[in-house]
């Protein structure tokens, strides 16, 4: 066999091998993600309420409680307890110890929470084992979901890159990235979900999230729709704590 013939043969083999290697099939898969918490001991779940603040436009406590209850009703195997939202701010104010004092209005009720610092005096509430055990006894020892919700307006100004449509002299459309100075406003949502064992009153797990949204300064978007948009992004992560979730995707099978 000449050198030339050997070269031709080896490149032929390479082509055949490459063709063989590129036999592939796309296939949809669903990856099940196990829940972070083992909730098999609980048949019931109580979304007790939240310490909330940031804006007067949305009641973070009521809206979050309603939303989580409705999500859990459809996407969790536990029975959701329907009851009034617990007055957690008042409970925290009553039961406060030597920690940072909760500010109150002249009427004696806790002052509105404006920023993250205002939430700190309420933190002791979640570690109040006796209180949560009592709540647990009242509702037949469920899994208790509580925490804090900060939903606040925000404003930001700076250089933003955006795609802009341009047409040349022949009428052909092109999209070019342009950098412009923009003033934007929107909202930031920072919930902390605390999961408490209703049998013992102890904290089982807690998670912090942060989501934000910004719009053009001249755009008017109701606070409540921004709240739901931001909560929509968090809900899958919240649910994955309690129940198994399936993540859809596509992979390539090889032959």
């Amino acid at each position: 066999m000449t050198a030339r013939a050997a070269r031709i043969l080896s490149s032929l083999v390479a082509v055949v091998l490459t063709a063989a290697c590129t036999s592939y099939y796309e296939i949809p898969i669903e990856t099940p993600i196990r829940p972070k918490l083992d909730v098999s001991a609980f048949q019931r779940v109580l979304v007790a309420g939240f310490i909330s603040g940031g804006t007067d436009d949305v009641d973070g406590n009521l809206e979050t409680t309603r939303l989580l209850r409705s999500q859990l009703r459809t996407k969790s195997e536990m029975r959701v307890i329907d009851t009034d939202v617990l007055p957690l701010m008042d409970v925290a104010a009553e039961g406060q110890g030597t920690e940072k004092a909760i500010e109150t209005t002249p009427a004696g009720v806790p002052a509105p929470i404006k920023d993250d610092k205002d939430l700190e005096p309420y933190e002791h509430l979640f570690a109040d084992v006796a209180y949560w055990k009592k709540v647990g006894e009242e509702y037949q020892q469920p899994l208790i979901v509580t925490g804090t919700v900060m939903f606040a307006p925000q404003q930001r100004a700076g250089i933003v890159q955006r795609d802009q449509e341009v047409y040349d002299s022949l009428g052909r459309r092109r999209v070019v990235p342009t950098r412009t100075y923009m003033e934007r406003k929107g909202y930031v949502l920072k919930p902390r979900f605390v999961f408490i064992d209703g049998r013992t009153g102890a904290v089982l797990h807690s998670e912090n999230f942060r989501e934000e949204i910004l719009y053009n300064a001249n755009q008017t978007t109701p606070a409540l729709s921004s709240y739901f948009e931001l909560m929509d992004r968090l809900i899958p992560s919240f649910l994955s704590t309690l129940s198994s979730q399936k993540i859809k995707g596509t992979r390539v099978l090889l032959q």
Binding site: I27, I29, E30, T31, P32, I33, L253, L254, Q255
Partner: peptide, 17 residues
């Protein structure tokens, strides 16, 4: 390699990460 690749996908689908 294809056997290992396909197995990995199947394990993923079964949640055996």
């Amino acid at each position: 390699a294809a056997a290992q690749n396909n197995l990995a996908i199947a394990y993923e689908h079964e949640g055996d990460l």
